[in-house]
């Protein structure tokens, strides 16, 4: 099957052109990792799986996985999550 080249929408291009933070305007997820102490994810859509060593969250881009030790969720609202604990690795599964 021929893979379709993803077309960047016009709105996104315009926002990039004037340097606006896209996580505020478009709701693209913004992932911040603070050393190995914790991470913040803005614009998430939900938690898929959570235990002490693994946190899986879904975002509008796809699935985001954080591996670590003694992970606790410091705060959780419907748009962002703050994570504490030793972070050992993360990856993104974009659809």
């Amino acid at each position: 099957m021929k893979k379709k080249k993803r077309k960047i929408p016009a709105a996104e291009r315009a926002i990039e052109a004037i340097d606006l933070p896209s996580e505020l305007v478009l709701g693209t997820p913004c992932i911040t990792v603070r050393g190995d102490r914790g991470a913040t994810v803005e614009n998430l859509s939900g938690i898929v799986e959570y235990d002490e060593n693994l946190l899986v969250i879904s975002t509008s881009l796809g699935i985001f996985r954080i591996k670590g030790e003694k992970l606790t969720i410091k705060s959780l609202t419907d748009v962002d999550i703050e994570l504490c604990g030793r972070i050992k690795g993360f990856d993104i599964d974009a659809d």
Binding site: G46, Y50, D51, E52, L71, T72, I73, K74, S75, L76, T77, D78
Partner: peptide, 12 residues
């Protein structure tokens, strides 16, 4: 969280 209930310090 979908029904706007704020949770914090979640620990498994």
């Amino acid at each position: 969280i979908k029904s706007k209930i704020y949770l914090w310090d979640i620990e498994k």
